[in-house]
């Protein structure tokens, strides 16, 4: 009997592999979870998009729940996300701060004037340094930050309606 079972080893290993693959089919290998979740959001102070002589400081948001959306005029996925952001700015009662990532001001302003501006403020990050601090690797990316300035959630890629309804809105309610 013992010798018989020995020959089943390859089959058993194979079954385990199949199990992993089945699970793996529903995972996205490209998505990199942020290690910054539940960590304090990195502080930044950057020039404003519409007035480069003034700056926006992330410290000014302490005490409120807010969304940080990293976007750029050259990013096509951001364009897809834009209508949803517009709707969110109307319907969700939290400020959305934009970071214009590795972009030029005229082009970014042009996009906002054509498609509407969902942001309560837009800071620029021409050199992508804020992006590195936040671990941005593909725009758009959106961070939900709580009253203590702790990152609670990160959306990689465009916000989807599902993510908004199932994750972001309930979390905002919980945090408020």
């Amino acid at each position: 009997m013992k010798t018989q079972l020995k020959y089943l080893i390859p089959f058993v290993i194979f079954l385990m592999l199949i199990g992993f693959f089945l699970k793996g089919l529903n995972l996205d290998p490209r998505e990199v979870p942020s290690p910054l979740i539940n960590k304090p959001a990195p502080m930044f102070e950057q020039p404003l998009l519409n007035d480069a002589s003034k700056t926006f400081s992330s410290n000014s948001m302490l005490g409120q729940v807010w969304l940080l959306n990293v976007w750029a005029s050259w990013c096509t996925a951001c364009r897809d996300e834009h209508p949803l952001l517009m709707a969110m700015s109307q319907q969700i009662d939290v400020p959305i701060v934009g970071i214009d990532y590795k972009d030029t001001n005229p082009e970014a302003l042009d996009v906002l004037s054509k498609l509407g501006n969902p942001y309560s403020a837009v800071a620029t990050d021409v050199e992508g340094r804020v992006g590195i601090d936040y671990g941005v690797y593909g725009v758009p990316e959106t961070y939900l930050i709580d009253k203590e300035g702790v990152i609670r959630y990160k959306q990689i890629g465009p916000i989807t309606v599902a993510a908004l309804q199932e994750k972001i809105i309930p979390m905002i309610k919980g945090l408020k």
Partner: peptide, 8 residues
């Protein structure tokens, strides 16, 4: 870098 992007 790991602090920002994880072990990935």
């Amino acid at each position: 870098l790991v602090a920002r992007y994880g072990d990935f």
